[in-house]
Design a protein around this nucleic acid. Structure first.
Lengths: 340, 340
DNA sequence: AATTGTTGTGATAGCGTTGTCATAGCGTTG
DNA sequence: CAACGCTATGACAACGCTATCACAACAATT
């Protein structure tokens, strides 16, 4: 019913093989024949059947990307970087958002495997290595971004969380802060544990710590951030600075503080790991670690490309250094000395 | 190299046909055999080759979605609605952003066609019916959302722009505004022409108009909005209210007015067709037409599903009514009478 | 002149799945 | 009990393409 290679071959008076060579631009084809074929293609309005091609050639030129939250600008930026690298190479992206639900994440990865993607880029919501290994085959090409999974045995590109957090703490201490709170997603995710650990370690070096009752560990969502903000607002005694381990948390926290009538930075200072989405309109007014999202995406895509092209060296972990971006969400504490 | 249907069949001691029936859950299969097959599937860790399946069955269970700007929350919301309808039906989405470049839009649509998607949902950046008909085949299933294309002959779901704009104008006039500016994307796109036309018609009914020098027609991007804001800021005599035909324009305009030291709404009032992305954090502070993005996506997906399932009635245009959302970007003009 | 390599083309054989048809056993019905 | 429909399974072909091989024709090298 639809025009096939053979139809074109017949009209051009050549073999299907030759038409295939022309449309794929590989193998030896003479100028004259190529032109004859292309004319036939145009005349019949031939559309290559990519499904048949993929079936035969066992390569789909498709990359699956699973992120944990598509509405988060970090992942959108990373996606941009991925596309930037993969699109010119002829790959199409299959994009899915797990919405921070691990089971959905696994489900998408499995679906992608069934659809025979050439590789998968995964920003995990916290899948275990065990679960992951049931989903992927031993020869699956997978690159993790933003969140590392120990023991999964995949390439990984992520922030140098330690460096980012250190810059943040340095700045906070410099500004005179002495009491600190933390809001984070699950510590089972590297983005959680690494940032929180680094935060506490950096504080320790400066002679401070985080009081247990000022630690809120939940999900990497603005909803959880909002809830944490409510708890914070209700506290009699508050930390002078609160560290949010990602931008969604910061967003929720700031909104809830605003709703509760707590002013930032007058009443409490807030810093975020990750840029706030709305910085564009209202300028970046939150002091934060500016994540190299796009570069992370690019690096992940490049790593995956190498794997597809046969690189079978041991997997590697790439750390990309972020930089501090100063906003107006941190108060300078001049002289006040609290006894601790 | 990989486990196939036949491998499973062999282990289970049945024919490939039977295994196919089991894994697809269609046709007659006895309980006993089904169990035997499923055990074999589990033991071999069989993964259906969806590419082969698609090739044979001529249906990919894939829907292509081309939007003009993935970073725009309107399209993200619409995407959510689309996914909500299509995902439970087993469809996977192929998502692409044309970034308002018509050639890229066409390219993606063509690529999707080659990949044999079962249907396409398109928020066009302004492709002509002629171009579109070279890309799609006569039996292509296509649904347009947000932007209608006259003469394309496809189903279409979009805002009742007239109603939305009327509500806006009514409110502006009620607040005492008498001089108006407009910022819009191309009038070749229905979202542009319909909104601008409706705006001018509604104003005319109220006895007002838009001065030619207060009309800025460009692209539906925040960049263009920013530029328009600069032009506006530089004007000696300004309109008292400016209508932005989409949210990206409003975003850019507001940012540039802010940069130029023009206060909203004190110096100039701004209204937007479409919700501002950052309403979430800073609350909706811009008076705007709240678009039924998610419902538009849902309706488009449902329309497409019907087409796929064989509905071949004449194509239809669905208009979804939006509603006004009051913010703080419009000043009430009490008594001032300007002579015009 | 013989050998080798390069270029250009065709014939053939599947890839893994499912649609279609054939067949056979069974229960129900007039 | 013959006729029929329903259930259950297998055999077989074919989907459109490309990998592989085979083979020419010709050029370049020994």
């Amino acid at each position: 019913m639809l025009v096939t290679l053979s139809d074109v071959a017949q009209l051009a008076g050549v073999s299907p093989s030759t038409v295939s060579r022309v449309v794929n631009n590989n193998g030896y084809v003479s100028e004259a024949i190529a032109k004859r074929v292309m004319d036939a293609v145009a005349e019949l309005d031939y559309r290559p059947n990519v499904v048949a091609r993929s079936f035969r050639s066992k390569t789909t030129m498709t990359i699956g990307v699973v992120v944990s939250d598509l509405t988060n600008s970090y992942f959108m930026d990373a996606l941009g970087g991925i596309e930037e690298v993969l699109s010119p190479e002829g790959y199409l992206l299959l994009i899915a958002s797990s919405n921070n639900v691990v089971s959905r994440e696994l489900q998408y990865c499995l679906e992608f495997d069934h659809r025979r993607v050439d590789g998968t880029i995964l920003a995990s919501a916290g899948a275990s290595p065990a679960k992951l290994s049931t989903v992927f085959r031993k020869d699956s090409r997978v690159v993790l971004i933003d969140r590392m999974i120990d023991g999964a045995g995949f390439d990984c590109v992520l922030d140098d969380n330690e460096s980012g957090v250190n810059q943040l703490v340095e700045y906070l201490v410099e500004q005179g802060h002495q009491t600190f709170g933390v809001v984070s997603g699950p510590l089972s995710i590297s983005a959680g544990s690494e940032r929180v650990d680094a935060f506490e370690r950096a504080l320790a070096r400066a002679g401070y710590d985080v009081r247990p009752e000022w630690k809120w560990i939940g999900e990497f969502t603005d909803e959880y951030g909002y809830g944490a903000g409510q708890l914070l607002a209700a506290l009699q005694e508050k930390p002078s600075a609160v560290f949010c381990a990602n931008n969604a948390l910061a967003q929720g926290l700031l909104l809830s503080l605003n709703d509760a009538g707590i002013r930032v930075p007058d009443d409490v200072s807030v810093v975020s790991y990750g840029t706030l989405a709305n910085g564009k309109l209202f300028r970046t007014t939150v002091t934060c670690v500016e994540q190299p999202a796009r570069e992370t995406g690019r690096a992940g895509a490049r790593l995956l490309l190498e794997r597809i092209r046969g690189n079978d060296e041991p997997y590697q972990v790439l750390r990309i250094p972020p930089r501090l971006s100063l906003g107006e969400s941190v108060r300078r504490i001049e002289s006040l000395r609290t006894n601790r």
